[in-house]
C-alpha cells in the first residue's frame, strides 16, 4: 500500500512578542491551510505560541556543507568587524 508522498512542511513558531520565529519541526499536509492547522495542533499543544509560519520543505534552498570553507571561513578572519578589536583608552570609560 504505497501512496504518493504527502508534501512535507517546515514549521516555525514565535513563542512571545519580540522574538523571531524559530524552526520547531515538520509535518505532512496536502495544502497550506491544513498544514497551518496541523502545526497548531502538533506544535502548540502547551500554549507557548503567538504566531506560526509553515513553509513547504521543497521551497527551502540550503547551502552545501562541503562548501562551508568557501562560504563562511572568510568572515572569521575579519576580526575588525567586532567591537573588541578596537582599543579605547581607559580614561574614556565604557563605549
Amino acid at each position: 500500500m504505497t501512496e504518493t508522498a504527502t508534501p512535507l512542511w517546515e514549521v516555525f513558531v514565535r513563542p512571545r512578542n519580540g522574538l523571531a520565529h524559530r524552526h520547531v519541526g515538520s509535518l505532512h499536509a496536502h495544502d497550506a491551510m491544513m498544514a497551518l492547522q496541523a502545526a497548531r495542533d502538533v506544535y502548540t499543544r502547551r500554549g507557548e505560541t503567538l504566531s506560526i509560519w509553515v513553509v513547504p520543505s521543497s521551497a527551502i534552498v540550503a547551502s552545501d556543507p562541503a562548501e562551508k570553507d568557501m562560504m563562511f571561513e572568510p568572515t572569521a578572519t575579519k576580526i575588525y568587524r567586532h567591537p573588541t578589536f578596537y582599543d579605547v583608552p581607559d580614561d574614556v570609560g565604557h563605549m
Binding site: 504505497t2 504518493t4 508522498a5 512535507l8 519541526g25 515538520s26 509535518l27 502538533v42
Partner: peptide, 15 residues
C-alpha cells in the same frame, strides 16, 4: 510525528 520527521531528514519518506 517528530521522530518520523527526524528519520525523513535522512532521505526516507514517512510512507
Amino acid at each position: 510525528l517528530y521522530l518520523y520527521s527526524a528519520a525523513e531528514t535522512l532521505g526516507v519518506t514517512r510512507e
